[in-house]
Nucleic acid binder design. Structure first.
Lengths: 185, 185
DNA sequence: CAAGCACATGTCCCTTGGTACATGTCAAGA
DNA sequence: TCTTGACATGTACCAAGGGACATGTGCTTG
């Protein structure tokens, strides 16, 4: 489970409440690992029970901030260094592309143009963040350094998908209008 | 749900049994959309109940092949053309990269080298398939045309990740050994 | 001072995903 | 003939994800 380690990783930066974590998860990891606040509160409860985090402070409006423990820090480090990487690329547009032959050529062209536009735009977004960071506009902490590296990955991935969609538009359509020949049997 | 549409898409190519679909899902979509055979059989039952597929033939060893219906074809086409694309990039290595600052510089270098190796190799794999297809070695059906387009996406994505990992190795490590300063409170 | 809004934490339920386990069928080769 | 292995289909259970709904709290502003 990655929500667990995502939370531990964020808490390694310093104490935070469930609300903080939900905001930060959405802002920082929303495009990669969506998480709803109910799941976050539930997982925080489990992390407390396992001793990986502890209540740090209670504030106004029932706010309860948590702090990572040595055990939690060890756990997230163990995840990072000693567990196997899952390389599965869960990407819906990739799944869709396998079935492009079921689309009308016109629709496919429109679809690819829209995808190219979307990915070019989001690549630009990540690129702007990376450039701002490189100009020193977003701090120099270890955390922002890592986010810079992640932003580079996001930029390259989205740019690759934008380029791919542009390329795919130039491929002669080989659309089939129906199921395979065996269907008539 | 994408398993449903993946199955319908594969059945649009022609009749197939649950066993066939499990094999093909693993081989064709395993790196993108993992699916276990129990889920496939269950989903096939639901698709029959919804009238999207029908039993095509029964064979030896309890083999039961299904055929897509007009309703099923309409359903998968509707999914392809009229539903919103989910652009979430569910990629564990990307989540991990946000927490690189928690790793020792040595471990991080080793990790990035291994990632670069893995992605370069898998990019080469997809590239070889694309080249074979372009030489006409894997047929010319609409389906294989689409798989060619998908292979191009896979090649570019994996190459982008390989390049990223190489690039990341050159970034000066900004690793922090502990949680944020607030922790002492 | 009332209203509205952002802050803050949860419950509930349904769907989906993943793993373990169980069973039956046929062909090939030792 | 026996055994192995590929073919083929499921059940059961538990974990995780996602959305709807519910509730309480304090600050700001008209």
């Amino acid at each position: 489970m990655s929500l667990r380690h995502g939370l531990l990783g964020l808490l390694a930066e310093g104490p935070a409440s469930g609300y903080d974590l939900a905001q930060r998860f959405q802002q920082l990891l929303g495009a990669v690992w969506p998480a709803q606040h109910p799941k976050i509160y539930a997982e925080l409860g489990r992390l407390v029970a396992d001793g990986h985090i502890a209540v740090h402070s209670e504030g106004p409006r029932r706010r309860r901030a948590y702090q990572i423990t040595d055990s939690g820090l060890a756990e997230v480090r163990h995840w990072l260094t000693a567990t196997e990487v899952d390389h599965t690329v869960r990407l819906q547009p990739l799944l869709r592309s396998v079935f492009f032959w079921l689309m009308e050529p016109d629709e496919l062209r429109r679809h690819l143009a829209e995808e190219a536009r979307y990915y070019a735009e989001s690549a630009a977004l990540y690129r702007r963040y990376a450039e701002a960071k490189d100009r020193g506009e977003v701090g120099t902490s270890p955390q922002t350094q890592s986010i810079r590296v992640a932003a580079e990955a996001a930029t390259r991935l989205h740019q690759a998908l934008a380029d791919w969609a542009e390329w795919a538009k130039t491929v002669p359509p080989a659309t089939g209008t129906g199921p395979g020949i065996d269907r008539a049997h």
